[in-house]
Every structure is written in C-alpha cells, then in structure tokens.
C-alpha cells in the first residue's frame, strides 16, 4: 500500500511528466503519416504483365474485380504454321467500395501484374467513383515503392534460390567433369594416348 496519499502523488507525477514530453498525436492532414513497409493503401495494376488469366477475379472474396477481354488471332509466324490466339484486356476495374484489402488478388497473380501501393487518400463523395478503372489502376503503379530489403535472417527469395540451385548443379557437373578428366589423365600415364588431350 505505501503511504496514504502516495497514489495521489503518483498520479500528479505521471501527468506532469507526460506534459513535459512530446505528445503522440499524429497531425495527419498537415503532416503525412510515416507508413510501414508493405502498407496496404490501394492496388495498382501493371497491365503490361496481365494475361487476363482471371485468377484474381475468381479468387476475390468480394467479387470486386471486373475483367473484360477478347481474343485476337495472330497470323502464323512461319509459313504453313498454325495461327496463334492471344487474350487482349478490354476492361480491368477494382471496386474499392467492396474491396476488403485482403490482398489475395496480389498473392494469386502468377505474372506480377498487381501490386500494393501505400497511397490511401482516394476517398470520394460518390460511391461510384470508388470503382477505379484500368487507366487509374495503371496510374497507381507509379506510386508503388521498391520492395523493402529482406531481413538478415530471411529465407532467400525463391527466384534466387532456384537460380542458385541451377548454378550449383552446373558447377558441380563441371567440377565432376574436370575431376573425371584429370583422373583419367592420371591413370592415362600407364595407358598412354587415351583421352585427356585437351587438358
């Protein structure tokens, strides 16, 4: 318990100490907030990468992605070859009045066409204006930041891991080839004239 009234004194001390420190208030409209890396503000579309595979639209829990497309036929590259068909994007829209910012569309996109942007100031006075069409989604791409560097203890990115694996395999194969070549040349002392000519 302590002395009677020590609680009152403590209350006074805490409030006075707090008063001498800087307040924690965020002065938002005057000062922009410092957002953490990978902040989820708005979704940008890098439409050059989009193949209209529709995975994002189908995985979206809110059904807030609208995609229209048509097929175009490309003439055969070589004479006598088959004509190729290709998907062309006509409309790509995200209705941010429905979006719940789960990020599944970005996770699921196999071609890296969707990205998180930290921009969050796109409130509208008309709910219909919250449906961002393709050109607006493309504009958001300019606000997508570089991905932050990985943590020190993080796993290697998959792409680099795969490349490294292939490189290691190749190096191992070459080393094995060199090994067998030198081994053969060493044993070729007795059996002269057999291989190892290019060593």
């Amino acid at each position: 318990m302590g002395l009677p009234g020590s609680g009152l004194a403590k209350g006074l001390a805490v409030t006075l100490r707090t008063m001498t420190r800087r307040s924690v208030t965020a002065h938002y409209p005057d000062v922009q907030p410092e957002l953490p890396a990978r902040s989820r503000g708005v979704i940008g579309l890098f439409e050059e990468n989009c193949t209209v595979c529709m995975l994002c639209a189908r995985e979206c829990p809110d059904w807030c992605i609208y995609i229209d497309s048509h097929k175009e036929t490309l003439p055969a590259a070589a004479p006598g070859g088959r004509e190729r068909s290709r998907n062309v994007l006509d409309r790509f829209a995200i209705d941010f009045s429905l979006c719940m910012y789960c990020g599944i569309c970005i996770e699921v996109c196999p071609f890296d066409a969707l990205f998180w942007s930290p921009e969050f100031e796109y409130a509208e006075t008309d709910i219909r204006d919250l449906t961002h069409e393709r050109d607006k989604l493309r504009e958001w791409m300019w606000t997508v930041p570089e991905p932050p560097p990985l943590d020190d203890a993080a796993e290697e990115p998959k792409e680099i891991a795969a490349a490294r694996k292939a490189a290691d395999k190749l190096a191992a194969a070459q080393a094995a080839a060199a090994e067998s070549a030198s081994g053969e040349s060493a044993s070729g002392e007795s059996a002269a004239g057999e291989g190892g000519g290019d060593a």
Binding site: T18, R21, S23, V24, T25
Partner: peptide, 13 residues
C-alpha cells in the same frame, strides 16, 4: 491545452 498535453495529446489546433 494542459489536459491534452498531460494525456499525450495536443488539444485544439
């Protein structure tokens, strides 16, 4: 103002 700063806020601005 005093109450705000004692609570870590800034009060009317």
């Amino acid at each position: 103002k005093v109450m705000a700063h004692m609570q870590g806020r800034v009060g009317p601005m």
